Simulated scan of single mutants.
Amino acid sequence: MKAFVLVLALCALGLPRLALAEAAFAVAPTEVTDWKTVYGQIAAKDMIPARARLGGTLVSLSVTEGDLVTAGQELGKVVDAKIAFQINAIDAQIAALESQLANARADLTRGEALKARGVMTAQAYDALRTQVSVLTQQIEAQKASRQVTEQQATEGAVLAPIAGRVLEVPVARGAVVMAGETVATVGGGGVFLRLSVPERFAATLHAGDAITIETGGASVAGTLAKVYPTIAGGRVNADVEVPDLKSDFVGERVLVKLPLARRQAFIVPARLLHTRSGLDFLRVRAADAVTERAVVPGPKQVIDGVEMVEIVSGLSGGEEVLGDE
């Protein structure tokens, strides 16, 4: 009976040690990524102005900021009152030329009769025929000019260049606009993130790097799609592609985490770190001795679903970090 009790006691003493051994975490240098949090701005991939093709008065404007439009949709109409007068003037010129042509044809008919009787010379007859041909061509030229003027009138319609959302309408109905002036700006083709990073970090940015975006309290993964080679104002611009990025506001700012560098560091599971009286401790086993060692923790990050904390000072590598007793 005493032997049995002794065996149970030894087992009871050994179980905690086995549990500690299972909970031990071997400390070794691990490659970690340094992240920098910056603000990114949501931008439309395509921002194309809908311009007036005709100078005149904006008599109608059917859209406002935020409206969804389709490609080719009429956004407004510009009218130039002078076009109607130009068409009337051309019609009057055509009528005058048609009257002259009627007289020239009558002269040509008489000339043909006179030439048949040998009264008119061939030279005079050719002049009458040339006059009829010239007036006919002048009438055709005026009709073509009228078609050009009518086409200008139809170009008063301001059309959406692409399908998307109206971002800006800088004019109002009744305003006088010039040819080529912007009536509305349409953003389409989806959205992306535009970053502006200090130039000292430019060398650490590479196309294809994984990016973390904080949107609405959740983290979304993105990819650094393009780094622009021009540095302006001490900053470099970069574009980030984010699948299914949705925003009702172009220009909205969101937090973006950029990978800046990779280095070796000591990291341990955050659950093994204990704080007492403002100091942080780890239970460390080294050379078969278990001690509580004061450490200086660094930033936390999640690796493979486990929250890890970097130990800036207090570990040298090769130790084992133990859990609670």
Rank of each mutant, 00 (worst) to 15 (best):
A3I: 07
A3K: 13
A3T: 08
V5N: 11
V7K: 09
L15I: 14
A19I: 08
A52E: 00
G56A: 03
L61C: 11
V63F: 01
T70M: 12
T70E: 15
A71S: 14
G72M: 02
D80N: 14
D80V: 00
F85A: 15
A89P: 02
D91L: 10
A106I: 08
D107R: 08
T109E: 14
E112N: 13
A113D: 11
M120E: 08
V132W: 04
V134I: 14
L135N: 06
I139D: 02
A144L: 15
V148C: 05
E150T: 05
G156H: 00
A157P: 02
L159K: 02
A163T: 10
G164W: 00
G164Q: 01
V166G: 02
V171N: 01
V177Q: 01
V183F: 01
E199M: 06
A202L: 08
A202W: 03
A203D: 09
T204P: 06
L205T: 02
G216D: 12
G217F: 07
G217E: 09
Y228T: 05
T230I: 12
E241M: 07
D244W: 09
V250S: 07
E252V: 09
P269V: 12
L273F: 04
L273N: 02
L282Y: 03
A287L: 12
D288N: 14
D288C: 07
R293G: 05
V295W: 00
V296F: 08
P299Y: 07
K300P: 03
Q301D: 12
I303S: 09
E307P: 03
E310Y: 04
V312I: 14
S313V: 15
G323S: 04
